[in-house]
């Protein structure tokens, strides 16, 4: 792969802190290798800013291999940028052309308030998980043998596909309603598909949905944007499954 270098113009959301008013700032950045990842390009911008003794842009990032779910930029009007099935850290500058203007904004949702620049608070996801995203089994290791309950491969695979969610919040960011249904649907589905999770299925779905609503996420209108932008390709089937689980639970719970 032959490296190419491009010059770009960046329009980045800058916001001092949660209470400050933010605005878009424009930066010129030259000699960006097309083999660089988007975050490496941001590193380059920050290095430039530091050399100009300006404050670098704050953004969340960690593993830089598409699995931790930290990175969270809304790039040119799309969560994680123009490629599908990709996190920002795996987006490469070869997706951009010389002379491009690139908008970089934080996730926007009431439930994800901006902390600084491009950094948002996604702890709402943690609280949803705490409301029921688990199997209530003690950690003693004194459970039954792992192979005591065979699980149909198809169910196990589907549970895995749902569990592949990295909790990045792209679904919320891209949804015009800031709905968290894909995230919650994936969690509910993972456990609903496995025999270990079925025991608590009713309480789980009711509690997680209640918490989701309390956090101020919007409602799902099935636009399907989340599925398209999800870096892990989590399917809308998971939302449908949650809807089924919810109906079962709401109708039968006492």
């Amino acid at each position: 792969m032959a490296s190419k270098f491009i010059n770009i113009s960046l329009k980045v959301w800058r916001q001092k802190n949660a209470n400050a008013k933010g605005a878009i700032e424009t930066y010129k950045l030259d000699n960006v290798s097309t083999d660089s990842s988007f975050l490496e390009m941001m590193d380059q911008l920050n290095e430039q800013l530091i050399n100009e003794r300006k404050e670098p842009v704050a953004f969340d990032h960690d593993c830089r291999e598409g699995i931790c779910g930290s990175c969270s930029m809304y790039i040119n009007g799309r969560a994680h940028g123009p490629e599908t099935g990709t996190t920002t850290c795996q987006l490469h500058m070869r997706s951009f052309n010389d002379g491009d203007t690139v908008y970089v904004e934080p996730w926007r949702a009431k439930a994800f308030p901006v902390i600084k620049d491009l950094v948002v608070d996604r702890s709402a996801f943690d609280r949803i998980q705490q409301a029921g995203g688990f199997v209530s089994v003690n950690t003693s290791g004194r459970t039954m043998d792992a192979n005591a309950t065979p699980i149909p491969k198809d169910d196990a695979d589907k549970a895995f596909e749902a569990a592949a969610c990295i909790g990045c919040g792209a679904c919320v960011a891209t949804c015009k309603n800031s709905s968290a249904m894909l995230f919650v649907g994936a969690k509910v589905s993972q456990y609903a598909l496995l025999p270990q999770g079925k025991v608590e299925a009713k309480d789980r779905v009711l509690n997680m949905v209640r918490q989701m609503d309390e956090e101020g996420f919007g409602n799902c209108t099935n636009t399907g944007a989340c599925e398209v932008e999800c870096p892990k390709g989590i399917s809308l089937e998971n939302i449908a499954r949650m809807n089924r689980e919810f109906l079962k639970a709401a109708l039968s719970a006492e």
Partner: peptide, 19 residues
């Protein structure tokens, strides 16, 4: 492994349903 399966960790399985 027992613990993780009990927690709902979706390990890869064979067609017979075993790990």
């Amino acid at each position: 492994i027992d613990q993780c399966v009990a927690q709902g960790v979706p390990f890869a399985r064979e067609y017979g349903g075993l790990l």
